[in-house]
């Protein structure tokens, strides 16, 4: 009997290997991870609020359905996610997701909650996630996203994009709406911009802008200590007002003088003038950082 069992083990032990590899995942779930999945009927332009003060990632994707599909995974039973649609008996105009701590003794790791949502692409979002990262893709409504340490990325946002992460990096890919991006120590990266209005400010982080300055657009890029790199097509038409008090200023565009445009400071380095017809307004300033403005090769 014993031998038979041993032989059987010998015969089948290699078959167990793939199952053995799955054990850690199953163990983690058993150790307290809880997964909740829900689908809500919602208006195409519904408002979605997510508040995740305990940490964890948030991923939101826009889709063509008039539904919100949410998957929330908590790291322990010591936290829970409340979901509250309004109205609750028809297509939701507003949906709220909030992470609550049930046990104040829970460790930061036990409090972590991850969200993954598919939402109508015209929805508007208000997201607060102090420590976790936030990623939003293909949502064309307004976005208001706040974090302290988490990175924020918004891809193909077309509404009013208001993002603020004190220490995390902010990445905006192909923004088309009005952008307000602020940070203290994080880097701001704006790529493929089609926005007519951008206000990006950070303290010690860097700003990288690679996109078009559209006619009658208004763009402000400002840092305290971080460098600012701007790349745009040589055919763009804008009035440049760039100033760095203590940093280097490197402008590779040919500037035409612009009457009545005066430097904001008599000190430091500045570049003032029109590029082509000077239609958009571009203001770039740094206190200690370097500024580079150059045409796309």
């Amino acid at each position: 009997m014993v031998m038979a069992a041993r032989n059987e083990f010998r015969l089948t032990k290699y078959l167990y290997v793939p199952f053995a590899l799955l054990i850690p995942a199953g163990f983690l779930m058993a150790a307290g991870q809880e997964r909740a999945e829900k689908t809500f009927r919602a208006l195409p332009n519904c408002h979605i609020h997510i508040s995740n003060p305990t940490g964890g990632t948030i991923v939101v994707r826009g889709w063509d359905k008039s539904e919100v599909h949410a998957v929330c995974v908590t790291n322990s039973a010591k936290v829970e996610v409340d979901s509250d649609p309004t109205p609750d008996n028809a297509e939701a105009e507003r949906l709220e997701f909030v992470t609550h701590v049930l046990d104040q003794e829970a460790t930061p790791e036990e409090r972590t909650t991850n969200y993954e949502l598919d939402v109508p692409k015209e929805a508007s979002l208000i997201i607060s996630s102090p420590t976790g990262s936030v990623s939003v893709e293909h949502v064309t409504g307004d976005d208001s996203i706040e974090s302290v340490n988490g990175a924020i990325s918004v891809t193909d946002g077309a509404g009013f994009i208001q993002v603020r992460s004190l220490n995390g990096d902010i990445t905006l890919l192909r923004p088309a709406g009005h952008v307000e991006a602020t940070s203290i120590m994080g880097n701001l990266t704006i790529t493929g911009s089609e926005s007519q209005r951008i206000n990006a400010q950070t303290g010690s982080g860097k700003i990288t802008f690679d996109g078009d300055f559209l006619p009658i657009g208004d763009y402000t890029l400002k840092t305290y200590a971080g460098d600012i790199n701007v790349i745009c097509p040589s055919s763009d038409s804008f009035a440049l007002d760039a100033h760095s008090l203590r940093g280097k200023l490197d402008n590779q565009f040919k500037l035409n003088p612009k009457p009545r445009l005066h430097s904001r400071s008599l000190h430091g380095a500045s570049a003032l003038g029109r590029i082509n017809r000077g239609e958009a307004s571009v203001t770039i300033s740094s206190y200690n950082g370097a500024i580079h403005v150059r045409p796309r090769q």
Binding site: P108, P130, T131, V148, N149, L166, N167, I184, M185, G203
Partner: peptide, 9 residues
């Protein structure tokens, strides 16, 4: 972690 982040800011 949050406290340290605010203090740095």
């Amino acid at each position: 972690t949050i406290k340290r982040a605010y203090e740095e800011d």
